[in-house]
């Protein structure tokens, strides 16, 4: 009993005050596409293992978009993009109320 109490005392509080802390720098989170850099080769669409990438017509222009609700955050697209138009960020807070929102960003 004494040992248990001593252990609890020594460990102290480990609970995080901030409930939504940022992820580690290496964390593979939200994927950001730079439409300026993208040359439209669309190799990434073939590489994506979960079919999360597709093209969409935005303001009269075919653009690459990612559906975060399908994405498995493997980072293959970013690794293989010759133009470095796809970047992984460590942003992990992606909850959304409607699927459309997850698809369009």
């Amino acid at each position: 009993m004494f040992e248990i109490l001593r252990k609890i005392w020594r460990t102290g509080t480990v609970t995080r005050r901030q409930p939504l802390p940022p992820a580690a720098a290496k964390y593979r989170g939200k994927i950001v596409i730079d439409p300026e850099r993208c040359n439209g080769c669309l190799e990434c669409i073939g590489i994506c293992p979960s079919g999360a990438l597709r093209t969409n017509c935005i303001q009269g222009k075919e653009q690459l978009v990612i559906s975060h609700e399908k994405c498995i955050f493997c980072g293959s697209c970013a690794d293989n993009c010759a133009e470095q138009a796809i970047k992984l960020t460590n942003q992990c807070y992606l909850a959304t109320r409607n699927k459309q929102e997850a698809q369009e960003r």
């Binding site: 955050f73 493997c74 992990c92 992606l94 909850a95 959304t96 109320r97 997850a102």
Partner: peptide
């Protein structure tokens, strides 16, 4: 609500 992530933290 949808929470994307594989798995989400």
């Amino acid at each position: 609500v949808f929470v994307p992530g594989c798995p989400p933290r």
